[in-house]
Design a protein around this nucleic acid. Structure first.
Length: 953
RNA sequence: GCAGAAGUGGUGGAAUUGGUAGACACGCUGGACUUAAAAUCCAGUGGACAGAAAUGUCCGUACGGGUUCAAGUCCCGUCUUCUGUACCA
């Protein structure tokens, strides 16, 4: 008697795979082609995995196993993004070292992952918080610091090249664009200099110049400061104005921070998207995030002032429609431009808008506010005087923080002008701006605009830019929404910067002293002086700097140099981890040249869409940088990317009266006043499939309801209300994959998660249908076991042609399903095949052996077991995947000419499996067909047994 | 507001280039086995109408139009839901 005992089978094969290193990728695979399948590695949280996490892992595992069957040398690793805020928050509360928490969480994750039978090559595991890993994160940081972006070659180059340029030709060695960078940010004597000047500059002066170009640099930048967390947050770590983790308020604050010059790569990050096989919505959101807009920069002189105001516009064609300028309240010229009469009003307005939180400003988009400065600017082309206003609809962080207002062509300018009764000159021919602005570019002709009259949008833009450049008051330019990324965090649990300071100037620690390992501290909070937590490790800082200084001969050894006490953000380690898997043990380099060249980039990357503008953009940036500097040979990290949908939870709610004295079943709520009823989450494990609550368990769990009156249904049951929400511990709707594995096994879980629906779609988790999938595995098992005793049996006879048809139909479908990532339909395909083979009582090796290979990527444990029972000693992994033999299928592409009424010739498209007799019968039998034809000659006739279904004319 | 995705039975969802709509599964109904339950197996299951039955006819893929011999699929308009994003000059 041999039953499908999934528990012992799964345990057996998981042990077998681990012992035999079945899934170890080879670095020397000869002629075998490589394939790199990667999951976005998880942050090991304390809550463990829920059934939503493995969805993507199962899909990638199926694909990885499939590719092994297809003869590829597959790299399919897994690791942990193990630096992160929750471990640190837990450390602050309990004093427990984050590395201990992290290790415990990783152990739990590993246990859960192992139960699901993934074919990960665990020899290659990486953890971002491992010093042997993050030494290379620190190393990459140093490389970024020692590089600059050269627009003339469109790539990053060593900073020494730039220094050489300065030594030879001073600032004029730079192109026009880079010269402008200098003049906009530095004093005149530092922005235009000769080679000799460069030699004469002090260390500080040189560094001030170089830091304008380095790919990572220190800058006094306005940041999102979260007082509750004591740290800076990136824009994508803030959701609705509060911190993503913890939901604490966030304020704007100026701080000296490390920044990453991702903006240098804006255009290449945009262009590179076209080559990538990524979901279009995801590419779209990266395009939007980069936010390229082409237009012009226009300089307005201010009447009676030295100052000038630079604005960016996408509509230089409308320049004669300017009737005022608007500055952001934070604009640097606000204070100096304001006239005495307006001073009070302006100050009040600036102060008021500074106090409005981000949240308020976002919530209140409609209301219009602003104030006149009293100053006037000179229109660069017409010479007209235009008033300068301040308005909070202009954002300090975009463009120059100032706009030229063209009320006839921009709705916001229009609304502002209406509100404050400013003129709205119409510069469009035959267009009414009675009620709203005319914001379309085409089709319209410019009017009332001097030399632009009669031109269309693109002609007028070109002419306006030409005129502006001629008078030195503007130029055509491209503006990006993308900002440089702040890279400093005031946290403990992150990579320390390999940086110390000499006379306020940053110095890189020599890579030979890496890793710069996190010190022990007595607490994980900022120090009393407001330094980050690393400020508590005085001895460590001293020792580290001493070591580094010894290596630097140019430095006075006796001086005390402060160490950088910030740490790197979470995305640092995740921006390059996919390379470390290629050569995880390497102590000399982050990965060897051979490994990097062999594995190249990730062929298939699976993960959630929430990383669209964070991780996926930063990784692309670092990869392009590493490529430029010759460390790697690919300039995009992820060729194909799939976003798996989120698996949502089905929360359960118990109704109770407001006073808590009665618990009300969902079917009885109409007996109560809705105002009197509240609903509370209850743990989904206490609720049956029919939404029936185990009241005793609930009361044991929530003793405050122990005395409550139970208002149940007429049949005596107590029902809960269901609602679909994100799976989360706090909503008590988490389903643990371990429980499913216990009850049904990992193969069932894997198949069921795929069966649930299309991979990319979000869907609620419901255990309702799992018995169907589990039943399928039992039927599959039975196919290989027959007779009274149900012992293993396969016949060595030649299979029947019916059985072979079923097999080859299945092979064809499964092959194409996997290539198209429609894993859900292949589960159905398997079910059909097993049902049909059972009905045929097919038990021949010629059918059953290929069938088990087909199923192996999906349900690897049962496949291995059956494979071994079929007499094979080697693992099924890597056994050649069956190809379908067309001779067992009527090819749908093949067309057969047949005669009709002795005259007309038809071509039959055999999309159904028919024998020839049936076709003839079908055509001859159908009378309606002849009526439909009406004398046309059809190209194609679609038939089903017994009748013609459709005719293609 | 903008961008993207999607609307198919009681439910999850199938449906090559337009070509038998509802595969497969859940649920439900009936039956077999059993003292019983579980498990397993068999049959039925979009709606309406006709028929004793086999079966037949009509209607059906959010709504309204259109193209076509043929539309879930293509085009135009409307509505709804989800997911991003937020005054980007």
């Amino acid at each position: 008697m041999s039953k499908y005992t999934f528990r012992s089978i799964e345990e057996k094969w998981q042990n077998f795979w681990a012992q035999n290193q079945t899934f170890a990728a080879s670095d020397d695979a000869g002629s075998q082609p490589k394939f790199y399948v990667l999951d976005m590695f998880p942050y090991p949280s304390g809550a463990g995995l829920h059934v939503g996490h493995p969805l993507g892992y199962i899909a990638s595992d199926i694909y990885a196993r499939y590719k092994r069957h297809k003869g590829f040398n597959v790299l399919h690793p897994q690791g942990y993004d193990s630096f992160g805020l929750p471990a640190e928050q837990y450390a602050i509360q309990t004093g427990q070292h984050p590395s201990k928490t992290t290790q415990e969480n990783i152990a739990r994750y590993r246990q859960q992952l192992d139960r699901m039978g993934f074919s990960f090559d665990w020899q290659r595991e990486v953890r971002t918080s491992d010093p042997e890993y993050y030494r290379w994160t620190q190393w990459i940081f140093i490389q970024l610091y020692q590089s600059w972006y050269d627009p003339s070659q469109d790539k990053a180059r060593p900073i020494s090249d730039l220094i050489a340029l300065f030594e030879q030709g001073g600032s004029s060695a730079l192109g026009q664009d880079l010269c402008r960078v200098l003049s906009e940010n530095l004093s005149p004597e530092l922005s235009v200099f000769q080679a000799a000047d460069w030699q004469a500059f002090s260390q500080e002066q040189r560094e001030a110049i170089l830091s304008q170009f380095r790919l990572t640099y220190l800058a006094e930048s306005e940041v999102n400061w979260c007082p509750a967390l004591g740290t800076v947050l990136a824009n994508d770590e803030i959701v609705n104005g509060v911190s993503e983790r913890g939901g604490h308020p966030v304020v704007r604050k100026k701080m000296k921070q490390w920044s990453m010059r991702i903006t240098a790569y804006a255009q290449r990050l945009l262009d590179g998207l076209d080559q990538l096989d990524w979901p279009e919505p995801l590419k779209e959101s990266q395009r939007h995030w980069i936010g390229r807009s082409q237009g012009a920069s226009v300089v307005f002189e201010v009447k009676g002032h030295q100052a000038h105001i630079e604005v960016f516009t996408t509509r230089p064609d409308t320049i004669f429609g300017v009737s005022f300028l608007t500055l952001a309240p934070e604009h640097e010229l606000v204070a100096s431009l304001t006239t005495a009469e307006q001073k009070q009003a302006v100050e009040a307005y600036v102060q008021a808008s500074a106090q409005r939180s981000e949240r308020e400003r976002m919530a209140d988009v409609k209301s219009i506010s602003g104030v006149f400065t009293g100053a006037y600017a000179i229109h660069p082309l017409s010479g007209a005087e235009v008033p300068i206003w301040i308005g909070d609809y202009v954002l300090a962080g975009y463009g120059t923080g100032a706009v030229m207002a063209v009320p006839c062509g921009d709705q916001r300018d229009y609304d502002f002008a209406k509100h404050f009764d400013l003129p709205i000159p119409n510069i469009f021919k035959d267009v009414s701006i009675e009620n709203e602005a005319y914001a379309l570019k085409d089709p319209c002709i410019i009017d009332q605009s001097d030399f632009l009259n009669g031109l269309n949008y693109s002609q007028a833009c070109a002419e306006a830019i030409k005129a502006l450049e001629a008078c030195g008051h503007g130029r055509g330019t491209i503006n990006y929404r993308l900002r440089d990324a702040v890279f400093s965090r005031q946290r403990y649990w992150g990579e320390p910067f390999p940086v110390y300071y000499k006379n306020g100037l940053p110095q890189m620690i020599d890579p030979q002293y890496l890793p710069l390992v996190l010190p022990e501290v007595d607490a994980y909070l900022p120090t009393e002086d407001g330094d980050p937590p690393l400020g508590r490790a005085d001895q460590w800082a001293w020792d580290t700097v001493q070591k580094a200084v010894v290596s630097n001969k140019h430095i006075d050894h006796d001086k005390v140099f402060p160490l950088e006490l910030n740490t790197m953000p979470g995305w640092a380690g995740s921006s390059w981890y996919f390379f470390r898997y290629m050569d995880p043990q390497n102590k000399e380099v982050f990965a060897s040249k051979e490994a990097l060249d062999y594995w190249g980039s990730v062929d298939l990357y699976i993960g959630g869409s929430e990383h669209a503008t964070g991780h996926l953009l930063y990784s692309r940036f670092w990869v392009k940088f590493l490529f430029d500097r010759g460390f790697i040979s690919v300039d995009e990290p992820f060729k194909k990317l799939i976003n798996q949908g989120m698996i949502l939870g089905e929360s359960a709610f118990v109704y109770r009266t407001a006073d808590g004295k009665q618990l009300v079943s969902a079917g009885r709520i109409q007996d109560f006043d809705p105002k009197e009823l509240q609903s509370v989450h209850c743990d989904v494990s206490m609720v049956s499939l029919t939404n029936e609550l185990d009241v005793e368990k609930f009361i044991a769990w929530r003793p405050e309801y122990s005395g409550a009156v139970i208002v149940s249904e007429e049949d005596g049951t107590f029902k809960v209300k269901r609602e679909v929400e994100k799976m989360s511990k706090s909503k008590f709707n988490v389903v643990n994959p371990d429980d499913i594995c216990d009850q049904y096994g990992a193969d069932t879980l894997r198949l069921y998660e795929m069966f649930l629906g299309p991979l990319e779609q979000s869907k609620p988790w419901s255990t309702a249908g799992i018995t169907g999938v589990h039943g399928f595995l039992k039927k599959l098992w039975k196919l290989y076991h027959s007779g009274e005793t149900e012992s293993f049996y396969v016949s060595e006879n030649t299979p029947s042609s019916e059985a072979l048809k079923v097999l080859h139909k299945t092979i064809k479908k499964v092959n194409s399903d996997i290539q198209e990532f429609s894993f859900n339909t292949s589960v159905s395909t398997f079910m059909i095949a097993v049902n049909e083979l059972s009905a045929l009582k097919a038990n021949e090796r010629g059918v059953l052996e290929p069938l088990v290979v087909l199923i192996a990527p999906y349900a690897p444990h049962i496949a291995e077991e059956l494979w071994s029972k079929l007499g094979h000693e080697q693992s099924i992994a890597g056994v050649a995947f069956p190809e379908h033999d067309p001779k067992y299928l009527v090819e749908s592409s093949k067309t057969y000419p047949i005669s009709f009424n002795g005259k007309t010739r038809f071509t039959l498209d055999l999309s159904m499996d028919l024998s020839k007799e049936e076709i003839e019968f079908a055509v001859l039998a159908d009378e309606r067909t002849q009526a439909q034809l009406q004398g046309r000659t059809p190209k194609k006739v679609i038939v089903v047994p017994g009748k013609i279904v459709n005719i293609v004319g």
